[in-house]
Amino acid sequence: MTPTAAPEAAPDAAASEAVPAPSAARASAAAGGGPVVRTQKLSLTFQTADGPVYALSGIDLTVEEGDFVSLIGPSGCGKTTLLRVIADLEQPTDGDIQVNGVTPHQARLERAYGYVFQAAALYPWRTIERNVTLPLEIMGVPQAERRARAAAYLEMVNLAGFARKYPWQLSGGMQQRASIARALCFDPDLLLMDEPFGALDEIVRDHLNEQLLNLWNTTGKTVVFVTHSISEAVFLSNKIVVMSPRPGRIADVIETDFPPDRDLDFRETQAFIDVAHRVRMGLRQGIADDD
């Protein structure tokens, strides 16, 4: 890891050049109108050999531009499935969903989002730099610009010196940061993250949470973040969606108004503890319903 770099120091001049200034992004969020993601009575049922599995049932969710929305719930509550439906990796069986005002399929074709998976999913035969530029290659960006953008975003995730390394030469946390740089480098307005830090130890996780919050503050991107960690959800989000399993549904939606420049110590404050308590209650309710 890179313990020396303070999270505030992450983006330098090069990075902010490639990234829209936060104020501008916020302004466009206000001007842009409609929500980034809107679902109405969204349901998804998997037909399996053991009968139907109700992964999602009647999901009504709205994600506004510039939101940081966490989907939290126990395993099997459909939070990952919901994220995959937004990304057009799964097809809903019922209900409506729009991403940027169009179907998820159309949004995917327009490359509206960057997706960060549970595992870094770096291609082992590519250097870190070429992993980051993979989406740019696919989108036909010229090489000089690809390299400039890779440099900027690797700098942003504190991996500046690792461009020429191969994935196996990096720790798990560094690999995941590289995959975040990969998701950001084509500058999508929407970032979909599926338990990106789930496989990392808590110290690394805390550090990356701070970096991610800082990244969200500087870029003004819309983030939908799947997690099963209460403190992660409360610390990062301005909107927490508590889900419960069988069938996967929304149990509670909590909006918070925490200061944007909060650091890890904020988790000791009463405001944080109150919200965390409400999330825990929501989760417990979901489990109780199940039994």
Binding site: A87, D88, L89, R108, L109, R111, Y113, G114, Y115, F117, A121, L134, P135, I138, M139
Partner: peptide, 8 residues
């Protein structure tokens, strides 16, 4: 899936 998210 990654390739799919880029509509490759």
């Amino acid at each position: 899936d990654l390739m799919r998210t880029y509509s490759a």
